[in-house]
Design a protein around this nucleic acid. Structure first.
Lengths: 349, 349
DNA sequence: CCTGCCCCTGACAACGTTGTCCAGGCTCTA
DNA sequence: TAGAGCCTGGACAACGTTGTCAGGGGCAGG
């Protein structure tokens, strides 16, 4: 084994597989370190002839600038973080893609993570992203207390919350009009003659779920319909539990004649239950779903524009980074009721 | 303005908003720099009393370790890159999530980017990720020449291709049995009496599309059915063009009686076209789609397990990083034909 | 021919962290 | 009580890059 006691650090590991550095390129091209840096970054002040020599050395060695070092030196990472509930959910795919496109337009990369609706995991992810010194964060919060972000905000990490507001801190937020959407959906059912209307939604600790519930109640109250406890099922997650909740509403003495499904996951399960059911029950789902128009009957939905949520949030993020945005705001995007048949069924039974 | 000519660098910018560093913590706690490092990393050799003092300083200052610097020093970024076609595509969401979960289990973050099926953009993204010194790459390639990756591979960047093989380089790849799946799908249609079977797929330059086409041809040949040119539509992208292609097959003198749809996007559009069509046409789609079972008739599909693709690829990636995996392999996951009705319609017309 | 200016180039420090190594103080034993 | 060994803590260099600054050479003008 060749001895090299002088450079014990070299023994640490492959160190990026011993990639060539600017120093190596400089040595090979017979120029100074900084000249290589200039060529790599396209800075002016290098003779074409010198530039050519450097470029040759770069190609020969397969040099690629180490952005980790660059980041350390420059203080900006040109990357932003996105924390959401679950990338596999069809609602978040387009949102994530929209954020990515905006980031790309600003020359930034996107790091994302799924919180799986677990507040601890959300915090862990967010802080890991902060440790990486992402320039900004887009967060779809799972928890309701974000004071842990205070030092980060103070340190200048741009942050925008999406879909649900931040808890206990003052931050930018972009949301859908969940209240209005749910109210419209229920009003639509009422307009078609329903009075016994069920609501199946997520835990009310989740902002969107709470707002949609509020919209449901508001529409019922507007129509002077007293809501019975048994019409509401809150906090059910997972297909089996949603299924059971739906069946309870439908197979009781005075069953509901219509249902507002609180999100796309619930909608899908309820569609399944209704398909097996003999009585025709009206349905309005929150969030649009693919192929909803091709089912028999088509599924009436309150649609949010997931991509617009993501785009708006990301654009605000970069405006924060520009420094052109100072005070936190709350932006609400409207929803759209899309009637396709299931919401227009008359009451039956 | 207070003068500070000694430290011109401070003028560069906020530098992460002037976050406190270990040096600041050390000064405040009255200990050495390395001691802070030890506390932060939970290394042994620090008195509980000292540790407590350091921890207090950390909390007071809101210190958070700068992982950029850490990465530079350690040579490992604990992050991996994922390049895919489009995060918004329901096929890639679960795949991406699966990769993320494996990464998380290994303490790594996931950076992802969409190539939008553009080879140049793929290369740009991949190289940007390499410049960040991700430890590994999972790539769903858009291009068919990946020699640009050679220096990176040589430098030790672990790489696994998914869904489609790498072009012109030797690398690990995890794919579905596209050939077999398509052949089974078409054989299924043939078994139900069809002979004039159409195929609508992506550009054959995309590996999956080529393989599925090959499977289609093989099944036809096995059954002794000569394929007519007009039954195949290759390289159509975008809903409108798929729609036109489907209509051409259906509204001609000797129309096809069944269709194999080459991917989930095509399937959805074909379903729409068929819904408007008066004649009953059989359909088998490649890739499962949500609610496929609830349509009338249910959509028969050749299902791939997107999550398994992602999981398998990511696991191989980390085995490469362990050093326990040396020679590139090709892994093929089988597909599953799910009969739901649309594939069992008899020929008509 | 000299002076001065500008252009190109390179030396150097710094970004914030971690690995190495050494110094001191302590305990334990002979 | 002195010596050996251990434990704690800190000084220092290095990771690969970029900003600053100064020096050298060429060219134009006096």
């Amino acid at each position: 084994m060749p001895a090299s006691p002088r450079r014990p650090d070299r023994a640490v590991g492959h160190r990026y597989g011993n990639r060539p550095t600017m120093k190596d390129v400089a040595a090979r091209a017979g120029v100074g370190l900084k000249t290589v840096s200039r060529v790599v970054n396209g800075e002016p002040g290098v003779t074409p002839e010198t530039e050519h020599r450097v470029q040759e050395a770069i190609d020969a060695l397969g040099f690629r600038r180490n952005d980790s070092a660059r980041v350390l030196r420059k203080g900006r990472t040109a990357s932003i973080g996105l924390v959401l509930e679950d990338l596999a959910d069809p609602f978040y795919g387009p949102l994530s893609r929209a954020v990515e496109e905006v980031a790309r337009a600003h020359g930034a990369l996107l790091i994302n993570g799924s919180s799986a609706e677990d507040p601890d995991r959300e915090q862990e992810l967010v802080l890991a992203l902060c440790a990486r010194r992402v320039d900004g964060l887009v967060v779809i919060p799972a928890g309701d207390d974000h004071r842990y972000l205070e030092p980060e905000l103070k340190a200048g990490v741009a942050t925008v919350f999406v879909d649900r507001p931040a808890g206990r801190i003052d931050a930018d937020v972009v949301l859908s009009d969940n209240f209005g959407g749910a109210r419209d959906g229920v009003a639509h059912l009422i307009a078609h003659g329903h009075r016994r209307i069920g609501f199946i939604g997520d835990m009310p600790r989740i902002h969107t779920a709470a707002e949609r519930l509020r919209g449901y109640r508001a529409a019922m109250e507007d129509a002077g319909i007293p809501v019975e406890e048994s019409w509401m099922s809150l906090g059910v997650t997972g297909p089996e539990r949603v299924r059971r909740a739906a069946e309870e509403m439908l197979y009781r003495p005075h069953p509901v004649t219509a249902v507002l499904a609180g999100n796309n996951r619930v909608t899908v399960t309820v569609i399944r239950v209704l398909a097996e059911h003999d009585r025709r029950v009206a349905l309005v789902g929150f969030d649009d779903i693919e192929l909803a128009d091709l089912l028999q009957p088509g599924v009436t939905v309150v649609a949010q524009d997931a991509a617009a949520l993501g785009r708006t949030a990301a654009e605000r993020l970069f405006r924060q980074l520009d420094g052109s945005l100072l005070t936190p705001e709350r932006i609400e995007l409207s929803t759209r009721l899309i009637a396709r048949g299931s919401g227009e069924l008359p009451p039956e039974g």
